[in-house]
Design a binder for these strands. Structure first.
Ligand code: MN
Ligand code: MN
Ligand code: MN
Ligand code: MN
Lengths: 237, 237
DNA sequence: TAATAAAGTTAGACTAATCTAACAATATTT
DNA sequence: AAATATTGTTAGATTAGTCTAACTTTATTA
């Protein structure tokens, strides 16, 4: 049985090696990470990660050699994915059934994700009608830990004059989510890019009859799809 | 913030000092427990309990002097009650919403009870329509940790020829619950005591047109109310 | 290539929760 | 009251997860 802490390491490794750079490393999977990087991500000291990397290697959850990079084994990846599955299913439950706001659910899910019961998660999945995405628009791994991360662009990539649809957020911080709430934007809303100013990287967007000037801090963290790129990665929206 | 372990000690203390003997100590509250008793209940060694008692005393959760008995302070009692509230609300959720059987829910609730969020529990309470009892018939403490344990008798106490209604179980073990399922008895069912045999303490009962001979292992663990004792403790049902 | 910087490891210490084994206090029985 | 049994405590060890401080390896730069 995995401890709370071990699960958090595996989850972090999935985030850093599979999700974070899902766009960049497309296909060729340089899915490994250094001790310092992981330590910074988990907010512990590198010494702690060195120790844990050795322990996880013994349990065959990671591949790792002294002074080398850390990467997940198939088993480690699956366990990490299951933590993420539980996290995202609980977030969905809290949001859909208990009416929590989307900026409150992550913290609670950080605790709930460590409840180990396959049956519980499958029942919850069913109770929620087998959701594909969590309230932040992130895909939910299936009962085998498989996930299909859909093609998605950031709003920053969308060209002037084009329209697109918000499908997810990239930043789950309370501040960011509260800002998105404040301006009245929701997943599935249509956004039009009216103007992109190269000088200071500000973008003027329109959604629901409202116009707004936003910075890259915003546009980098909104994932969108345009009408034509839904099934064609080559679309230059 | 209390640790997982500290919460389990407080919960155990509530069970042993307030619930276990709620019938016997009625009123005068000899609500304290020895180190060995608590150790046996928690399945740890007395040495471990001695240490923990000292720590809980420092945190003002228990009253305790070396070689003396352990009892909960007001604060400790409230914290313990809140753990029990969370446990019973989660059990109710699993049973009512996720269709778990009543013999499967306790184990899961043992993990879920340690999720700390007042808001979460109040939302869940509301989602469940403010239940008064969990699926085993145990009262659920309110948001202030207050609980009213209703008057109840065991089936063993009911006299020959009398009728009563099952309101709870006293034994939450999987084996006991499965047995109650097997014979087809449910909370709220009416039970008639047809015959009590002093010689071997066996009782013949009737419920839902069925007759059955049961032992004290059964009758001691079924809580009932008879028609007339609902509001009168003096009733000699 | 040699010097310097960055990244990673190791040794030793700490805390929480547990154990065993030896000891001490309290309660019960003769 | 003395002997015995029960109950509870203490000292010392262990494990997981963390830290700091010193050290080593690998990478980068001059
Ligand atoms: Mn989250
Ligand atoms: Mn999410
Ligand atoms: Mn229970
Ligand atoms: Mn219960």
């Amino acid at each position: 049985m995995l401890s709370f802490t071990e699960e958090n390491y595996l989850k972090a490794l999935v985030q850093l090696t599979f999700f974070e750079n899902s766009r960049q490393h497309e296909g060729q999977g340089k899915s490994e990470v250094g001790v310092n990087r992981l330590a910074a991500y988990l907010d512990v000291k590198p010494a702690t990660v060195s120790d844990m990397a050795r322990k996880l290697k013994v349990k065959e959850l990671v591949d790792y050699e002294k002074y080398g990079k850390i990467s997940l084994t198939e088993l480690g990846k699956k366990e990490g994915m299951m933590v993420i599955r539980r996290h995202r299913l609980w977030e969905t439950f809290l949001y859909q059934k208990l009416d929590f706001n989307w900026d409150e659910i992550h913290e609670l899910a950080e605790e709930l994700e460590h409840i180990h019961s396959i049956k519980l998660m499958n029942r919850l999945d069913q109770f929620l009608d087998f959701p594909s995405f969590d309230p932040h628009g992130d895909a939910i791994p299936d009962e085998n830990g498989e996930i299909t991360i859909p093609f998605r662009r950031t709003l920053s990539e969308v060209k002037e004059g084009k329209k697109c649809k918000m499908i997810a957020v990239n930043d789950n911080s309370i501040e960011f989510l509260k800002y998105v709430d404040k301006i009245g934007l929701k997943i599935e809303d249509e956004i039009e890019v009216l103007k992109k100013e190269d000088f200071d990287a500000l973008t003027t967007i329109q959604f629901k009859q409202k116009q707004l000037v936003v910075s890259p801090k915003f546009t980098d963290n909104i994932f969108v799809l345009c009408a034509t790129c839904l099934n064609a990665k080559e679309c230059d929206c």
